[in-house]
Every structure is written in C-alpha cells, then in structure tokens.
C-alpha cells in the first residue's frame, strides 16, 4: 500500500499520469472517494499518461467513455448504478479481459463485482482545502510509478 499527498488538482493529474506508465492493459483501477476529491482529475492525468488526446470528462450520464491511447481506456462512472442488472446493462462485464485499462469512479457502488487483482485508489481530503491523500493498493511498490 502506498500513500501520496496531492496539493492541487494539477498534482493529482500528475500522479495519474505517472501511474499510467506502469500499466500494460487489462488492469482495473477502482477509484473511491466522494464528490470533489479529484477522481476525474486523476483520470485526466492517467489518460494523458496513456497517450490519449482530447478532453476527458466524467461519464456520469453516459456511464462509460472510451478513449484510445497506447491501449484502450474505458472510463466508468458507477454513480447511477444501483443493482447487478444496472451494472450488466452498462456492458461492464464485456470490457473485462479485452486488453484495455478500466478506470472506475464511484467503485463503492459495485464493490462485489470488482474482479480479482483490482487496483484500489482512495482519494480523501487532506489537511488543507486543496490537499488530498491518495491511497493506492494492489500494485507492487516498485511498479506504482513506472520508469
């Protein structure tokens, strides 16, 4: 487990960008944290780190946004998912094991459906207004930030 402190949205993005360097495809990143904790900022950085061009926004209504980087990136928002039937109808299970990176906001809502080997990233308020603490579990210590 690794804890990192971020002092701004830009820093959160940078953390996501560095983490992307360690990803090869088929990883599932489950993000936890309430509104305003920086989940989408993290994904913005992650996408940039994977070579995705273009705007990254929260897929609260679409449920999933697809991006093409050096591997495909599927960005889910489970805020509106309340049941197994809801989850099935997002096509979530069709995206597992297809060589893409999945990053999921509001993973609290689909805890029981997360696959083995999931990487959990919790974003919480830190000491200052803009400060956040990111806790990363499920990645090897030396893997966490690529080369």
């Amino acid at each position: 487990m690794r804890r990192i402190c971020s002092h701004s949205p830009a820093e959160t993005e940078a953390i996501g960008e560095r983490l992307a360097g360690a990803l090869q495809g088929n990883e599932v990143l489950a993000l936890y944290g309430g509104m305003g904790m920086g989940k989408t900022a993290f994904v913005r950085g992650l996408a940039r780190g994977l070579g995705v061009r273009g705007e990254v926004s929260s897929p609260t209504f679409a449920l999933v946004h697809e991006y093409q980087g050096r591997v495909p990136l599927y960005h889910f928002d489970m805020y509106r998912v309340g049941s197994w039937d809801d989850l099935y109808s997002t096509g979530f299970f069709d995206y597992l094991d297809c060589g893409a990176v999945l990053v999921i906001e509001w993973s609290e809502n689909i805890e029981a459906a997360l696959p083995d080997g999931v990487i959990r990233i919790t974003l919480e308020k830190g000491d200052g207004e803009q400060e956040r603490t990111l806790t990363i579990e499920g990645m090897e210590a030396d893997e966490t930030f690529g080369n």
Binding site: S83, W84, D85, Y88, E108, N109, E111, A112
Partner: peptide, 12 residues
C-alpha cells in the same frame, strides 16, 4: 435472463 445473484448486495 435475470440472474439469481441479482438479489445479492452489490454496494460496499
């Protein structure tokens, strides 16, 4: 087809 597990708790 609806799965029997659809009754199981999904949320954390």
């Amino acid at each position: 087809l609806r799965l029997p597990q659809a009754e199981r708790e999904l949320k954390k």
